[in-house]
Design a protein around this nucleic acid. Structure first.
Lengths: 219, 219
DNA sequence: ACCTGAACACCGTTCAAGT
DNA sequence: ACCTGAACACCGTTCAAGT
């Protein structure tokens, strides 16, 4: 009797819209059905249940995460450019990325990026197991940073906050006493852009310098 | 009429038990009431509502995260020891830590650890804003690593997994072609213990080496 | 001050029945 | 093959009423 047959894709599209705007909690089967003008049970026919609907959305997001083109001249620069790009992509889809993370698929989502990192690390002279380790270290650092960063952004007022702890005088042997500039710097909110660049660069330089020292043998 | 008056602490204790064992989703007001042998509404009188109950549990967890005692001789060693300790603490309370994270309180939970890191970075000769940056970089790396690590553990089979991608032959310019040891290493599951140590050490060495080069001026 | 049951407005999911 | 309403078993929360 349905003149406008409901398709699985329509359901996914509408569901993605709800999640993008108001987060996964806003996606209820009943609201979704109401928005599509069908009975709740029709949705079940198309996508199984709520859990597999979310799974499908996550799968979509993983696919959307396209290839990465590094820019820059040195391998270190190019790795940093990949890192920047990844950070941007992640921050553009907060809700969906959180869902990918919750389902433990972050790793898989980053396989394309991993290939790019492998290329650069290899170009820098790292080989074998050591190269693999460097790639993974950088990868974990990037993803970890974004996770922590998002956490910090969602954070409320940070009740006893860093200012209170570092602003007031403390124990005698506390370095903050002797180094007011350090204390002040920690009392200020961190600049994530700069912290990200500094962290990645520091890690990459350290990892790649091993490549210059070693001849090229594995493990 | 209550001979055994229900206390707020009893409610928190029972709630913490439910969360620790089966995660936050298992904590429903009705189950909690049933376990305590009271009406659901009594719980509301003591803790407000479910949200503020969870808030209270999170607050508890933050408090439990005690002081950190670094071990080792060099500042680098001592920082690594702090990192190890933090990682262990985090992994011991997965559900509660996830809740702390969701509420954006990870930062605050780590203020004690931050103090320890400040001390060591200062001992290594870093000063002012640069010292603060080093502390934050290490801190973010540790927390980020654990978040990614937990994600990886929860992950299912990783359908197209790393093996498939790196195991088979690929594009010509792919370094994996020329470096089978690298390809094999990436096909194997990562050893998180080792990766953590390598990452932290690499970052710390790189950051602390700046301390040896600079005189000690701020920013 | 503390506890209670009843009621409200939501959920996800199943099932038997329609076309 | 696709859609439907009714029903079930859950939720969190409020409220008026008890002691």
């Amino acid at each position: 009797m349905s003149r406008n047959a409901l398709s699985r894709d329509q359901v996914l599209e509408a569901a993605a819209g709800l999640v993008k705007q108001h987060g996964p909690d806003a996606l209820t089967m009943r609201k979704l059905a109401a928005g599509l003008g069908t009975a709740v049970t029709s949705i079940y026919w198309h996508v199984g249940n709520r859990e597999s609907l979310l799974d499908a959305l996550v799968e979509r997001t993983v696919q959307e995460m396209g290839a990465i083109r590094p820019t820059g001249r040195t391998p270190a620069e190019r790795i940093v450019s990949v890192a920047r790009r990844l950070r941007r992509e992640l921050r553009a889809r907060p809700h969906l990325i959180a869902m990918v993370h919750e389902r433990g698929l972050t790793e898989r989502m980053f396989l394309p990026a991993q290939r790019a990192l492998v290329h650069e690390v290899h170009a820098a002279g790292l080989r074998g197991a050591r190269a693999a380790e460097a790639v993974r270290a950088v990868q974990v650092q990037i993803v970890g940073f974004v996770l922590v960063e998002r956490n910090r952004e969602r954070a409320p007022v940070q009740s006893p906050g860093e200012e209170e702890l570092w602003g007031s005088a403390s124990a005698e042997d506390d370095p903050a006493e002797q180094d007011p500039a350090l204390a002040r710097a920690l009392a200020r909110p961190a600049d994530p852009e700069r912290l990200f660049a500094v962290s990645v660069r520091a890690l990459v330089e350290s990892l790649l310098s091993q490549g210059n020292r070693q001849a090229g043998q594995a493990n």
